[in-house]
């Protein structure tokens, strides 16, 4: 625990966003994670992305499960709603919340343990539903909170702090998501906010579920020699496949980019992901190409927005829910009563 709460004093030239807030207004409680944990840096990235997008704090819902990573929603946007659910159940709870109130911006934060072991099934179904949310996996290769056991994302051959070697094949959340139809898939690194923040902004503007796998070293249990999730290993094996920036809607530059051509993805809300660099013959809307590319670089940590498809409807669109959020419908409309239910059942007889 830090000795003091981060003082409210701030730099006088901090900018204000469209809703009149500074980035400091998007901070949360003091982190209780280990000093130097990658998760804290991702927290700072999420804070910045939400601020830059000018999403009013009360329109944000922070969802998480259990783990050091899952603790982090406490550390950003104090003014937001939040639900810290049972281990691995974040996608299920997020589905319920989103079903009830689709007007909020859902920010899910999970760990590789939370999402790839106990919560794996929930993750897969949230992807299938194309639930509109940002889904961040803070991937450190271990169960940090329970003192560093290998997680399902640990690479074969990676060594624990005590020296034992992992022999089980890893689940790569990016490959998993691509293979089951995810509509937005990206990977980044906690130590590179210049890349991370624009990716998070794009993900927050995506039509459905945007999965962002962020390599996030656990300084306490997985930052040693022999680890494949340490700061140094990650830096040495980074391979930035695509380079992109995020252009918010209603900026002249959107039209300008459209005129220029090149690889752009126009998001559902009118914003644009502008790719300044993609590998030759790489198409961000070609699922197979993305998977092939990752397979062709097995020894590297491939980062960037790897796949994006804005054409797939999200859960509410698929289910043709009313345009008003269910939470805001009058109760009589939401629950028409037993007489109508009886009538409905009778119609099936």
């Amino acid at each position: 625990m830090p000795s003091i709460v981060k003082p409210r004093v701030a730099h006088p030239s901090l900018k204000r966003n469209d809703v009149g807030l500074t980035v400091r207004d998007y901070e949360g409680q003091m982190s209780t994670l280990c000093a130097g944990c990658g998760h804290d840096s991702i927290t700072a990235g999420i804070t910045r992305a939400l601020w830059e997008l000018s999403i009013p704090p009360h329109m944000i819902a922070k969802m998480s499960g259990i783990g050091c990573s899952s603790k982090t929603p406490t550390y950003f946007v104090n003014g937001a709603h939040g639900f810290n659910s049972a281990h691995g159940r974040m996608p299920a709870i997020a589905t319920g919340a989103n079903a009830a109130n689709k007007e909020l911006t859902y920010v899910g934060v999970s760990g590789d343990g939370d999402s790839l072991s106990i919560g794996l099934g929930h993750l897969c179904h949230a992807i299938r539903r194309n639930l509109k949310m940002l889904y961040v996996i803070e991937n450190n290769g271990v169960y940090g909170l329970t003192k560093g056991q290998f997680s399902a994302s640990a690479d074969v051959g990676t060594k624990s702090k005590k020296g034992e070697v992992n022999l089980m094949a890893p689940i790569d959340p990016v490959m998993l998501a691509l293979s089951i139809g995810a509509t937005f898939v990206a990977r980044s690194f906690s130590g590179d906010k210049e890349q991370l923040v624009p990716i998070l902004k794009a993900a927050l503007s995506h039509r459905g579920l945007a999965l962002v796998d962020v390599i996030s070293p656990c300084v306490t249990f997985n930052d040693h020699e022999g680890s494949t999730r340490s700061y140094i290993y990650t830096r040495q094996h980074l391979h930035e496949a695509t380079e992109s920036n995020f252009v918010p809607p209603a900026r002249e530059i959107v039209a300008e980019i459209a005129r220029q051509g090149g690889t752009n993805v126009t998001m559902h809300d009118g914003s644009v992901i502008h790719f300044s660099r993609v590998p030759d013959n790489y198409d961000v809307s070609d699922r197979k190409a993305a998977m092939d590319y990752i397979r062709e670089h097995p020894a590297e940590v491939v980062t960037g927005i790897l796949y994006a498809d804005e054409s797939v409807p999200e859960m509410h669109e698929m289910n043709k829910t009313p345009s008003t959020a269910l939470a805001h419908l009058p109760y009589e409309k939401l629950c028409p009563g037993s007489a109508i239910l009886d009538k409905l059942q009778a119609s099936y007889r």
Binding site: P7, R8, L14, D40, S41, A44, S190, G191, V219, Y231
Partner: peptide
């Protein structure tokens, strides 16, 4: 320094 960003993120006055 291992370039973890922790100091950058915590500094109240940037």
């Amino acid at each position: 320094c291992i370039e973890c960003d922790a100091c950058i993120d915590i500094c109240p006055v940037s």
